[in-house]
Structures are given as C-alpha cells and as structure tokens.
C-alpha cells in the first residue's frame, strides 16, 4: 500500500549548542542518502528515510543549520529468528549548513513512501535577479 503524502511541521530557531552533539542511544545512527538541488526560487532536499513516517521525522532549522532526524524502532518479528541480514535499522541523522537565506514561513516538508521532500524557498533578497542593462 502506498503512503499518502503527509505534511511535517518544522521547528524553527530551537535552541541548540553550536557544536556537534553526540548522541547516546543504544542504536546505530545512519546517514541518509540525499539529493539536493537549487532552483531560482528554492532549495529542494530529498532524503531516503525508509521506515520513517511523518511522526518520527524531526526537522529543525536554526539560523543556517538544517538538521534532519528520525528515530525508528528496531526491526523485530516476534516468533521469528533472523536467518540472513544485509541491512540494519536504527536512527537517521544528517545536518546541513545552508548557504542561502531561507524564507522560514514557507518551508514545506512532505513524507511519502519513506522519502522526505523538503522545499526551502529562498528569501527575497537572495533570489537571483536579472538586471537589465540599458544603453545610454
């Protein structure tokens, strides 16, 4: 069954120490694969977060530091033994320094089939503007 696209709320300007904070959880943390591209109007981030839903994903933007986090329950099937394993489950964490000014009120985050789509619209002054050159 395919997931419907679901909106995620984004925390803005939450207090966070400037240095990288190490987590102490009894789970592995994985770095999700991402695609990031920039158009004239916005920056789009796509992240593969299999197993994560709109409830388990946490997105924070503090100044220019964007943090993606998701905590997942480890895979377990009661009454079954694992006989072969190629992947492990755990949490996701990745942070980016954004180079552009972002219009914080218009950020959109959606989750579908384990893929996060984050759209960060550029703030007005940061947008590239074409400057007309006039002949004298």
């Amino acid at each position: 069954m395919a997931d419907k696209e679901k909106q995620i709320k984004i925390k803005k300007d939450e207090a966070r120490p400037a240095t990288f904070v190490e987590r102490t959880r009894d789970r592995k943390t994985f770095v999700p694969a991402v695609d990031i591209y920039e158009t004239n109007d916005d920056i789009v981030i796509l992240a593969d977060l299999p197993g994560a839903t709109e409830k388990s994903v946490n997105i924070t933007l503090e100044k220019d530091l964007l943090t993606l986090e998701a905590s997942l329950e480890p895979e377990a099937h009661e009454g079954y033994n694992m006989v072969y394993s190629e992947f492990e489950t755990g949490d996701y964490y990745r942070a980016f320094n954004l180079s552009e000014e972002i219009n914080r009120d218009k950020i959109e985050a959606k989750m579908k089939n384990g893929v996060l789509r984050l759209s960060l619209p550029k703030a007005e002054p940061a947008k590239a503007r074409k400057i007309e050159v006039k002949a004298e």
Binding site: V31, E75, H77, Y80, M82, V83, F87, E88, K112
Partner: peptide, 29 residues
C-alpha cells in the same frame, strides 16, 4: 546498511519461523 541501495540493489533481511518466512527490504520512493 542503509547504503546498499547505492550499490545497485536494496539490502534484504530474512526472518524465519517453523511455518513461514518474512523478507524485508528497504526500497524508499
């Protein structure tokens, strides 16, 4: 673990009991 997809194919986990097996694979998107 999460990165196998990047090598061309998703990773597979197999769980088995006496009567059936569960196969899980991560194929987001």
């Amino acid at each position: 673990g999460r990165a196998y997809y990047a090598q061309g194919a998703p990773g597979i986990n197999i769980w088995a009991s006496e009567n059936d097996a569960i196969v899980t694979t991560e194929i987001p998107g």
